[in-house]
Write a protein that binds this DNA or RNA. Structure first.
Lengths: 121, 121
DNA sequence: CCTCTAGATAGAAGTCTGTCAACATAGACG
DNA sequence: CGTCTATGTTGACAGACTTCTATCTAGAGG
């Protein structure tokens, strides 16, 4: 149920967008993850999982929060899984998802704007 | 050349994804901005502008960095403009773009992962 | 006023994405 | 084993997205 974490292997952890130009491969990898969170349902899924007590949420908890059908939720969870943002584990009848905080942290770090003092005039 | 900044009017500035579930309207607005940066060319454009000396870059500087045609760059700049991430200004023959650091900062803040200590066990 | 250049717009072609209905799979439990 | 429930997979279709060529606009400079 787990897949490779493309972002985990990249050196995007410490270099914000605004410090120096992204390389093309960096941009391609980052774009994949941002694309995964560029859908309202996926953003809310991610938020529901991340903010759920215990840090994990059952699919059954998630499905009820939306107006779309089960397969659609499954599809969105798969996109989030393949982007490395979340991971799922089956325990008995139910499947539980949790987020990978490192990936979230790296995305957040990349978007930190430039310190005005460090921008060359 | 300037448009409304949808994110600027929203209360997403201080509430990370992982603290509490995003509301549906919040998710819709955030998804628009993430979609704007979910393309490798737009990510690199944003990075080139943000990291350029003086905090701004001329379109003529940007076009050369890519293999696509001018109209395609124009299109991507328009998407970034309409998302509120950048703004353009004509000065004489050339058009200069600069980023809105507040919008970048808000995106970054939303993605900050939950402090493990604050996640209810 | 004419022309040249930087950049934006319009319209079209091909591709990708979100969604659903229908079907498949995995455990639980009798 | 048989059945029931929770998820996932497949295939199809409508709408959105990326890119191109062709065309247009704004300002500079003669």
């Amino acid at each position: 149920m787990s897949k490779q974490l493309p972002l985990a292997a990249m050196d995007v952890c410490c270099s914000p967008l605004a410090r120096e130009p992204l390389s093309e491969p960096q941009a391609v990898e980052l774009a994949k993850v941002f694309k995964a969170i560029s859908d309202p349902i996926r953003l809310r899924l991610l938020s529901l999982i991340a903010s759920h007590e215990g840090g994990e949420a059952c699919v059954c908890d998630l499905t009820d929060a939306f107006d779309v059908t089960g397969p659609t939720i499954s599809h969105h969870l798969k996109v989030l899984r393949e982007s490395g943002l979340i991971d799922g584990e089956r325990r008995g009848t139910w499947v539980y998802y949790r987020v990978h905080p490192e990936v979230l942290a790296r995305l957040s770090a990349v978007l930190v704007p430039a310190d005005p003092a460090t921008v060359p005039a």
